[in-house]
């Protein structure tokens, strides 16, 4: 098993509180890993440390043995969706992506391709402030796949999506996974995750409480049962 993402003894402290507390986990290449935990468990903070937006207090988080900031042209290796913000509301969807594409040296023709892939071609010229939440999530996903990366890191990509949006997202992620990509996805949609992910990492109060293949973590039960038992019923 090749490790794509390695988190080792990661600690992130805000004031006196450990948002992430000595977290160690490995994410295998070519697999979909669910990153689960109650609200405030430290998932987003850990992911922000992984992609260099937040500096770890101690420990390390690497992608193919390198810190994110040391990757050459990171967008071609890692696609990230952290929240539906990240794009300028007064710019059109296409303009927003063209700004990102220019910074990564990606041709503008790729922008049109990814907009078509996330089914936003017709809304490409619309200002982002007029997008629905679902459209913003799709635009964020389009940004993540702009560099055709091998790894995708998705923080709550289903947040705020309606059932049709969730169904679309499931289909989209499966299609991406079929290409052999490594996907690390955090979500509260446990039933959805049970059907989608290969491996699971569960954290609570910043600490790792379970990790392994789906079968190892949930046994014969459901992911929701295992999650509630492991986290003391906090969802």
């Amino acid at each position: 098993m090749t490790t794509a993402i390695a988190i080792s003894g990661l600690v992130k402290t805000y004031g006196k509180q450990n948002a992430v507390d000595n977290l160690t986990a490995n994410i295998a290449k070519g697999r979909i890993t669910g990153f689960l935990g109650p609200n405030g468990a430290g998932k987003s903070t850990a992911l922000r440390c992984l992609v260099g937006l937040a500096a770890p207090t101690s420990g390390s988080a690497t992608i193919f043995d390198k810190r994110y900031r040391d990757l050459d042209n990171p967008l071609s290796k890692v696609g990230t969706v952290l929240d539906s913000r990240g794009f300028h509301p007064a710019l059109t969807g296409k303009q927003n992506l063209r700004v990102v594409a220019a910074a990564a040296g990606i041709p503008d023709s790729r922008v049109d391709e990814v907009l078509e892939m996330v089914e936003l071609k017709d809304a490409a010229g619309k200002r982002m402030k007029n997008y629905s939440l679902g459209m913003k999530q799709r635009l964020a996903l389009a940004g993540a796949i702009l560099g055709d990366p091998e790894i995708l890191i998705l923080d709550e990509p289903a947040n705020g999506l309606d059932p049709a949006g969730i169904a679309w997202l499931r289909k989209f992620l499966r299609k991406l996974a079929e290409g052999g990509r490594t996907i690390l996805v955090s979500s509260h949609q446990l039933a959805e995750m049970q059907n989608t992910v290969d491996d699971v990492i569960i954290i609570n109060k910043g600490k790792l409480i379970a990790s392994g293949s789906m079968k190892e973590v949930i046994g014969d039960g459901s992911l929701e049962d295992a999650f509630l038992a492991l986290t003391g019923g906090e969802l």
Partner: peptide, 18 residues
């Protein structure tokens, strides 16, 4: 400051982390 106001700093520094 627009980068922080609109959250575009995230995309900016993910694309160019240096």
């Amino acid at each position: 400051s627009g980068e922080f106001r609109h959250g575009t700093a995230v995309a900016t520094f993910l694309t160019a982390p240096k």
